[in-house]
C-alpha cells in the first residue's frame, strides 16, 4: 500500500473515473441538503423581529460568502501541491476552483446588495466586508485572466500558482487593513467559537444550507475538473476511446 493512495492522484484517467462517482454522490447529497435547508429556512424558520422576512436571504448569502473565502484557501493549497509535488491535477483543480470561486464571490456580492437595499437603504456601501469581498473578486479575476494569457497550460498553471500564493499571503493584510479603514457590516452571523445569537430554528437550517452549498461547490468543481482533464488529455488514447465510444 504505502504511498499508492497518494500517487494515484497523478493519473488523470484514475481521477476521471473515480470523480464520476464522487460527483454523483455530491450531487444528490447537495440536492437533498439544499432542498431541506432552503424549504425550512424560507418557509418555516421564524420571522426576524427587526428585519422581517428580508433576513431570509441569509440562507443564500452566508453560505455563498463562506465559500467565496474557503475556495481561495483551497486554491492556495492546490498551488502549494503543484509546486511541491508537481502534480498536474492540482493545476486542473486550481483552474476549476478559480472560476467557481469567482462565481460564488459575485453571487455573495449580488445577494448582499439585494439584502442591503431593505436593511441599509442602499445597494452598496464602502463597508469593510463588502470592500474586501470586492477585492477578493478582483483577485479571482486575476487568476482567471492570467491563465487565459498563456498558451502553454503548464506555464499558465505556474504563473497562476505564484499569483495565488502571493495573494493568499496578502489576503489577511488586505482584510485587516480594510476592516481598520471602515466597518459598518453586522458582525458575523455564525462563529465557530461562540454560541450563535439566533434561535436554533433559525441557525439549524442555515447550517444545513452551508453544508449543502459546500457539497454543491464540490460537485461543480469536480464536474469542471473532469471536463478540463478530458480537454488537456485529449491526445491520450483512453480519452479518444472514451469520446469515440469504443
Amino acid at each position: 500500500m504505502g504511498w499508492r493512495w497518494f500517487h494515484q492522484w497523478g493519473s488523470p484517467r484514475w481521477f476521471y473515473e473515480r470523480a464520476r462517482r464522487w460527483q454523483l454522490v455530491c450531487g444528490w447529497l447537495a440536492l437533498i441538503l439544499l432542498t431541506l435547508g432552503s424549504l425550512w429556512g424560507l418557509g418555516f424558520a421564524p420571522v426576524d423581529y427587526q428585519q422581517g422576512n428580508s433576513y431570509r436571504i441569509i440562507y443564500l448569502h452566508v453560505p455563498v460568502a463562506f465559500l467565496a473565502q474557503a475556495l481561495y484557501a483551497a486554491m492556495a493549497v492546490c498551488a502549494i501541491v503543484l509546486f511541491v509535488w508537481k502534480m498536474k491535477l492540482a493545476d486542473v483543480a486550481m483552474q476549476s476552483i478559480a472560476v467557481a470561486g469567482f462565481a460564488f464571490t459575485a453571487l455573495s456580492l449580488i445577494s448582499g446588495a439585494v439584502w442591503g437595499k431593505p436593511t441599509w437603504g442602499t445597494y452598496w456601501v464602502w463597508d469593510a466586508r463588502l470592500t474586501s469581498m470586492l477585492i477578493l473578486a478582483f483577485l479571482y479575476l486575476g487568476a482567471i485572466g492570467l491563465r487565459a494569457a498563456f498558451q502553454d497550460p503548464d506555464q499558465a498553471g505556474k504563473a497562476c500558482g505564484i499569483l495565488i500564493l502571493v495573494g493568499v499571503v496578502n489576503l489577511p493584510i488586505i482584510k485587516y487593513s480594510v476592516e481598520w479603514w471602515n466597518t459598518l457590516h453586522q458582525p458575523a452571523s455564525l462563529k465557530l467559537t461562540e454560541k450563535p445569537t439566533m434561535p436554533a430554528s433559525m441557525w439549524i437550517p442555515l447550517l444545513i444550507n452551508i453544508l449543502g452549498y459546500y457539497i454543491a461547490a464540490a460537485y461543480l468543481v469536480l464536474g469542471s475538473m473532469r471536463a478540463t482533464v478530458l480537454e488537456r488529455e485529449r491526445r491520450a488514447i483512453w480519452v479518444r476511446e472514451l469520446v469515440n465510444g469504443a
Partner: peptide
Amino acid sequence: LVMMPLFVPVVIL
C-alpha cells in the same frame, strides 16, 4: 490588473 488588488493595504495606510 492582476497586481492592483494587492495595493489595497498600502493605499489605505
